[in-house]
């Protein structure tokens, strides 16, 4: 039994095609990541699956229930964290959790064990107003509230946006823990580096899923070899390489440039000579740079 099945979902807002023929499936005990920039259609997919909006075409099942007909049954069995911090900032941590317990018709005390590992981290601040929590603690509180009714499926829309690296790491550790307890988790993120924390990812851009696979497989499938160029004249080199006849692509990647050649086999000296011929001196070329999900994403965008 699959936790989520979506087939050929499409949705248009006025003139804008938000998503087009999106098909994904998520298993229980799996973290599925929807990875793509703002406006790619991630939120639309999650909102359709959480029964908040209706797709124009296509169909979807969540926990075997149809998102249109059985929306009330879905609403009882899923947990949802929308993009914006959506708790009540003028209520305390404890008041928020208890409120959500009562909304889902369950008792906070009875289900305390479910959220214990997460909630215990913010429990020392239980009398603090939610609005006064740091970004990381807010996320933990929101997750506690989304989990208080023991959902089988968890939808998280950009849970780590605007949260610092330490809190992000802790948050992902919690998600992996929940997954191991058998939950199905659909999470969206614009951060490409979070892909490796998911079991499977869907790379999404302009409303279309470009590729679905495990992160390792996506990186393995990358068919180009990448050369790294390190220099303190990044911009000059980028400009030059863009005029170079054999350049397939060249982009800044952190402190180096990722360069891909059009040719399958060639001599590194070619590039070196080209740059030196254009009066660039201080640079190092590295062979066999490991591609990242971002490299794959950018290459897929070229073919879209």
């Amino acid at each position: 039994m699959k936790a989520i099945i979506a087939e050929n979902l499409s949705k248009k807002y006025q003139e804008v095609q938000a998503i087009e023929n999106v098909s994904i499936d998520v298993n229980f005990g799996e973290i599925f990541g929807l990875i793509g920039p703002d406006g790619a259609g991630k939120t639309t997919i999650i909102r359709i699956l959480t029964t908040l909006i209706l797709a124009d075409s296509g169909n979807a099942n969540v926990n075997t229930f149809d998102v249109v007909k059985d929306y009330q049954k879905i609403r009882k069995s899923v947990g949802y964290m929308p993009g914006k911090f959506s708790l009540y900032e003028d209520l305390t941590v404890e008041e928020n959790v208890k409120l959500f317990a009562s909304i889902f018709n369950s008792k906070f005390e009875e289900n305390y064990n479910l959220i214990k590992t997460i909630y215990s981290q913010i429990e020392p601040f239980k009398n603090r107003l939610a609005g006064q929590l740091s970004g990381g603690m807010k996320q933990k509180l929101a997750l506690s509230c989304a989990l208080i009714h023991k959902p089988k499926i968890l939808f998280l829309d950009e849970p780590t946006t605007g949260v610092d690296a330490v809190s992000r790491k802790e948050f992902w550790e919690m998600l992996i823990d929940l997954k191991n307890q058998g939950l199905a988790i659909l999470v969206s993120t614009p951060y490409m580096d979070e892909a490796s924390l998911c079991d499977r990812v869907g790379l999404i851009q302009h409303g279309k899923i470009m590729q679905i696979d495990t992160p390792t497989k996506i990186v393995q499938d990358f068919k180009h070899s990448i050369f790294g160029i390190e220099s303190n004249k990044v911009y000059t080199i980028l400009e030059l390489l863009r005029t170079y006849q054999n350049t397939y692509s060249c982009y800044a990647f952190g402190d180096k440039i990722h360069y891909i050649d059009k040719r399958n086999k060639f001599d590194i000296m070619d590039i070196q000579n080209f740059l030196k011929g254009n009066k660039v001196e201080n640079f190092i070329i590295l062979d066999n740079v490991k591609p990242t999900i971002e490299d794959c994403f950018m290459d897929l965008m070229r073919h879209q």
Binding site: F85, L87, F104
Partner: peptide, 10 residues
Amino acid sequence: GSMEVLLVSP
């Protein structure tokens, strides 16, 4: 955004 959460609840 809390309305979203309320809608996706029983």
